[in-house]
Amino acid sequence: MVTFPGSNCDYDCYHVVQDVVRQPAVYLWHKEHHFDNCDVIILPGGFAHGDYLRTGAIARFSPIMREVVDFAMRGGLVIGICNGFQILCEAGLLPGALLRNRSLRFLHRPVYLRVEKNDTPFTNAYRKDQVLKMLAAHGDGCYYNTPEEIKKLEAGGQVLFRYCDREGNVTEAANPNGSLNNIAGIVNSSGNVMGLMPHPDRAAEAILGSADGAGIFFSMVARFAGLVVA
């Protein structure tokens, strides 16, 4: 778990990893230059550096990001949630950008997501087309990329999650922020870096209204346990 000044979901992620999926977790301060023995790097949600300039624009130059980029280049699993997704886009580890919500309002409510692909290290615990309930909490969540790049993402199967209604229909009405093609989560072309706008970390236990988000963490555990090939 990387903590930037302004991260506020680092403890949520820590709790899910440590107490829900029961794996050892450590915090990494953004000024650190090294981390060892990490299987997964999580960039949590929040408002790193106050979202000044653009969301994620300053955080991407934090010292630890150089290590995170190296780690990703070596094939390490990196997941960015909400603000973490924005940071990964700014850092160039994921394609595209996240714009201000179409409504110009901060969006804070449960949303439904459809699993588009389950043969990945992040989604193997789900069924394809499974509908998940997670919590959205963002002001800049409108996924944007050029039409050519969107085409590439779609053709390459890089869209992992789409906003949908309760029944799994991907409709304009179910699009909470104006994201192109209802995109809520994507993976990079080599399949080891994922960004997701809604919070699996805030929907990982039944007491929170949904435990659907835990699947993402369990997927990564299953992958390291050798239970799945993806």
Binding site: L53, R54, A57, F61, C89, E90, P95, G96, A97, L99, Y144, N145, T146
Partner: peptide
């Protein structure tokens, strides 16, 4: 490098 995001 910083002030503008070339994607958008």
């Amino acid at each position: 490098r910083l002030l503008a995001n070339p994607v958008i």
